[in-house]
Design a protein around this nucleic acid. Structure first.
Lengths: 337, 337
DNA sequence: CTGTTAGCGCCTTCAG
DNA sequence: CTGAAGGCGCTAACAG
């Protein structure tokens, strides 16, 4: 292992000078600076992370708590991970992955052992036991998701109420006279997620405003039979409903169950999914969707987190930041009148 | 911050005794042991990870290099991450996430800065510039994927050749007289992944053995038009082909494009996908599939990695370990004769 | 069985 | 502008 002392010896300076060259925390003459930099890359020196963390009290690591295992909704988190990792690297930080099945213990471990400088907490439940713990950690925390009580922590999430409105506004404009929500994530029942509530509140309000019927059908767990049963119930009232599927996992099963039954979205009914644009485009037929914007949400979360890490810069005033979804017309909604 | 010195003071012992109680690396009398443990949980002491790493030269961290961004095949990696994180925690390790877009630099950073004790490298290309680098790192490395030359590194992967055989054997048994492979991942062309080659080798060999025709159709990038074009070409020769889709991303698009064309898998043709059982079951109709077994592959990889980390235990003799896939009949293959 | 001590590699104050 | 020196919190010899 090559240390900063080795670099110092080769450059003919003291070890502290090497340190100052790397941190830039005091001015160095161009000559010695060059000698040090040359030595560094001659020896391919890299600072030891543990030593640096010990001395500086900063790890350059962001802890990321992901809802693996805890929920079935594990599917949509990849773009979050990807974006979070990218933003972290852009600020010279690494990402330490912690699974949610550790619960609050994962948080206290991250902070107590000084494994990271800041924490991103995903899979937030409406009433989440980890939040009071997170709030007392003494480490900046950002929540992706909005709990009932954030205990003063900053949150970022999609504006699910607006998402519900967008979907219903579109269906009203297409001439449907009733709206059926179908295929809520099954976790809504087991766990205490609240984004579906927010979505329903938005869609119900919009339906009322447009004078449309508004009903809700049971969750669609994975498996073809469940999808078929749910679709059956959704179509029971007859007519030409506008169907909304606020669960990216259920969009394809519902869509293809409809087709299998001879009810073709885009002709007989309209179907709008709540899913990423990528998922919507990959489907056959392509699904008209309200986007989940995981990348935007993640970017804003990381932006806030790094503001919180900067002791100088003032913190964002708003505690809750909502990202606006967009609706994109594709093949599963009927043509506009 | 509470340190082991605080614990020592409260317990009335020396600091090193606290350390030895925690590590168990020397015998301690039950009395002092208890006093120390009581002090530890009275103060809710947790050892500082940086200090421990510095002194012990072990970080208790596994570096995980994931193929985010580098490829389009980012979708199937969640179960890998989940399983890898779980196995790591089971051995009291954490996981540091590094994205592949850093290339070999990510590896040298992980090792050079002593950020981790071992590395899991995913998204392996047939000829992968990172492998010679990884082999010289002085840190145990496990590859998930098999390159042309592993440079002495251990690898784990699905047995893709066997996967190809299983699919073709099944189609032969169902009375199809030709096999069409359709929807290879587009990365095969851009990047230099080799698992599709292995799959094709297996399927071609099996087809020869059964006296079946064997042809290959272009990749299916995301988007409905591409899927439609590819299916068109696959059906061009007429008849009642057995279709194999060795790309989990393309399974649903191909399936529904066929249905859209009035060619119903399970009745007019047979379709076998290469995808996880979860994906196969979630589809409507459920897809007969050869499983990718990401959890098994990950578990074996982590098992080998921890063997490599144990200086005592002898290392696995075999450099390449292949996991056997399984075929499960569902709704997209015709009934057996 | 326990305490004392010397680092691990780096950051940062204090001297010059 | 640069060096010397102390200490971050822990592990692991070395003494008893």
């Amino acid at each position: 292992m090559v240390t900063s002392r080795d670099v110092a010896r080769v450059a003919g300076v003291s070890q502290s000078t090497v340190s100052y060259v790397m941190s830039g925390r005091r001015s160095i003459s161009p000559q010695t600076r060059k000698r040090v930099l040359d030595a560094i890359d001659q020896l391919t020196y890299q600072p030891n992370a543990g030593a640096r963390a010990l001395a500086s009290q900063r790890t350059q690591v962001v802890g990321l708590v992901v809802p693996f295992g805890a929920s079935a909704d594990t599917a949509g988190i990849l773009p979050f991970l990807e974006t979070i990792a990218g933003c972290a690297r852009a600020e010279d930080h690494d990402v330490l992955l912690v699974t949610a099945d550790e619960g609050a213990a994962g948080l206290t471990r991250l902070a107590g052992r000084a494994l990271c400088d800041a924490i991103v907490l995903m899979g937030i439940e409406a009433v989440d036991a980890r939040i009071p713990v997170a709030a007392e950690l003494g480490v900046p925390v950002i929540l992706i998701g909005v709990p009932d009580d954030s205990a003063g922590l900053h949150c970022v999430d999609l504006d699910f109420a607006l998402a519900g409105e967008l979907a219903v506004d579109e269906l009203a404009g297409l001439g449907h006279d009733r709206v059926v929500l179908i295929g809520h994530p099954a976790e809504v029942i087991d766990r205490d997620l609240n984004y579906v509530r927010r979505f329903q509140r938005g869609s119900a309000a919009a339906a009322r405003r447009h004078g449309l019927g508004h009903s809700v059908v049971d969750p669609v767990p994975p498996g073809t039979d469940a999808a078929r049963a749910a679709v059956e119930r959704a179509l029971a009232d007859g007519g030409r409903p506008g169907i909304v599927v606020p669960n990216s996992q259920a969009v394809e099963p519902v869509l293809h169950t409809l087709i299998e039954r001879g009810v073709v979205p885009g002709r007989d009914v309209s179907l709008i999914g709540l899913c990423t644009d990528a998922d919507a485009e990959a489907s056959v037929p392509a699904v008209t969707n309200v986007s989940l914007e995981p990348r935007d949400v993640s970017r804003r979360a990381m932006h806030i987190l790094f503001q919180l890490l900067d002791r100088d810069g003032q913190h964002p005033a708003e505690l809750v930041e909502l990202v606006a979804p967009r609706l994109t017309r594709r093949e599963t909604t009927v043509p506009p009148p």
